[in-house]
Design a protein around this nucleic acid. Sequence first.
DNA 1: GTAATAGTGTCTGTGAGACACTATGGT
DNA 2: ACCATAGTGTCTCACAGACACTATTAC
Lengths: 221, 221
Amino acid sequence: MEQNIILTVDVVLLTLKDNALQVVLQKRTWDPYKGFPALPGGYVHTEEDLDSLAAAKRVLKDKTALVSPYLEQLYTFASATRDPRGWSVSISYYALLDIETLMSQGSDRFLLHPVDDLPQLPFDHNRIIDSAVQRLRNKSTYSAVPCYLLPELFTLSDLQQTYEKVLGCKLDKSAFRRKIGELDFLDATSKARTGVHRPAQLYRIRPAKNLVLFDRTISKI
Amino acid sequence: MEQNIILTVDVVLLTLKDNALQVVLQKRTWDPYKGFPALPGGYVHTEEDLDSLAAAKRVLKDKTALVSPYLEQLYTFASATRDPRGWSVSISYYALLDIETLMSQGSDRFLLHPVDDLPQLPFDHNRIIDSAVQRLRNKSTYSAVPCYLLPELFTLSDLQQTYEKVLGCKLDKSAFRRKIGELDFLDATSKARTGVHRPAQLYRIRPAKNLVLFDRTISKI
DNA sequence: GTAATAGTGTCTGTGAGACACTATGGT
DNA sequence: ACCATAGTGTCTCACAGACACTATTAC
């Protein structure tokens, strides 16, 4: 019946660093492609994982020591040819994390690479990453998911820059703030970020707000 | 390594009949749930199916004798508990077909059931169908996919009614036609549908037009 | 004061919704 | 003539984009 199907989960963990979207990669510790950088991934453990989401969480935690506040199923890549070992299924997930949290956790266990300038990766990992980036870009036009690329406290300028990096286009400050205000998912804190110039109000995500669906777009791509 | 994982594909084939979205179901021929209506589905055959899309096509064809012009991966449901036999993966697809083509093909091999009034189905098939309907509704707000629910030739009123049934709300005739006109994916034919009243222009989908992505919404839900 | 960023006010063009209107067939 | 549906014209209101303006800090 079941002919030795390879069932894995792969996680595309994206972050924003040096003004670019970057993806977490790892040198593979086993064949095939041993030693080459690739997405963190691994077999589903049927005795341990209740479902594929749990498997993705576990794999990410075990391989990179990272925990992401946002983890969503992306797509399932399944074919006879994607893995040299045989018919293989990758249930792929994508995740978002701010660069500070990411670096403060086990940063010796992975490497970061800009998504716009990737070398050829093992399996169909280039395609998987492209799908994740496309999904993130698309979702950013009508949701607040880019918030997950920022630390707990951030300014509206931070948020706008995040959207701009993700979407790859400049946004109008006034229109952007109008929209964010309408959507009403931020709480102003009592703090401000001081610096060389006028201090900026610091915001955090309003607890228990669903950031995922708006009825209107924030911007075209 | 791989502990007897059950790998299946399930297909949610939707059509429009009696003014309602309906789903193709089949009485199961084997245990578990033998005799109960459920989604057409089956094991991935690794010797035969190059990838999961091919598997979905084959399963649909073999089980129902149907071929759909639109078949898209929906989501992968994978958990220890969804199938009494053990850890199970369902790579689910959804498909669209007009009712005429559907009935003219092997209609003795399946049954149709309105999606808004389903009994409890085996496995997590209710959830899978709900996901498919949600996806179709959402995609219909910014794409021409509902065209696949119509036969080759149709009037603009047919198309509008199709959108209305799928979205579950009335649309304004003038605005709808303006939008469809702008999107420019229909060809007027030389034919008209005659009836009791003024005949209506018949259209077909412009060949080689991508119906799937618009930059603007056709309507809110 | 100046420089630089934070944050706001306002105008305008576009486009969706509403709705009234005209057109054309059958009976 | 009348009815029902096909198909069009136009008004208005909301909103996104553009852009200029004010505010507040360090120096």
